[in-house]
Amino acid sequence: MAELSVAVPRRAPRDFAGLWIGPPLLILAGLFLYPLALILRETLTGGTAVLSLGHFAEVLGSALFRTALYHTIIIALGSTAGCLALGFVFSLIIAFVPFPGARLLARLIDTFIALPTFLIALALTFIYGSAGLLNEGLMRLLHLDLPPIDFLYSQWGVILSEITVYTPFVMRPLLASFSLIEPAQIEVASSLGARPFRIIRQIILPAALPALLAGGSLCLLLTVNEFGIVLFIGAKDVITLPLLIYDKAIQEFDYTTACVIAVANIGLSLGLFSLYRLAVSRFEDRRHAGLV
């Protein structure tokens, strides 16, 4: 027994399954990481052989970039706030004031995730556009010559579209977290005399906080990077970072500037992504499911 009581080093598990990570990693490296690296190189060299931070300073200091950054952030924050509010209200009613067809409605809203984002931007022009339903109606009604409502071709139009498109992304985790609140908790609270708003504040909101965080940070990430809606709304003075990259690269063939803006945009986006992952890991800690 003596020789057995010495810890015998075990053979490493004969398991090379981990090596299958190779092919997908190579593909990703070649098609994603390599292009990212070239973007970074382009910003530093500007197509020449000289490394410098000059392009960075120049582009990041320009008024064009700052305006775009400002618009990007305002639109993202506004849309996310709207998504959180609207998503919370919808989820609350679907989960806690249920009606026949509530689940169908939830699924209907959920399918919006699968639809192209510009669909809503296009649809809104038929309602709020200068020749849309609302403006035509008001012009006839009030005998006006000019369309009275003009918010669509401003950042507000973009924000409204993005709220519509991204609210389902908030509702998914919210509905998942609501389904984990025991109905008995709410019944007990009601029987103790709590009114709906107190129940929302003291029971539902705390339970939904991680879901709101996760959904909200996902919304921020998606709205910062949204391109189709801004392009389709096509307001002249609403330029966001993705749109500016497109303009610089495709309209002006100025790749260096486009790359610098892209680096800034990617940086912002990665920051938000880390926030999202952090929020999700807290969310998952509470053993919730339903997030991708």
Binding site: P24, L25, I39, L221, N225, Y255, C259, N265, F273
Partner: peptide, 25 residues
Amino acid sequence: LLDAIFFIPSAVPSVSVGLGLLVAF
């Protein structure tokens, strides 16, 4: 680390992905 790497493409704006491919290829 690998998990993060496989998730990162979802964090990079689509326009920048397009730009990267354009520059690289």
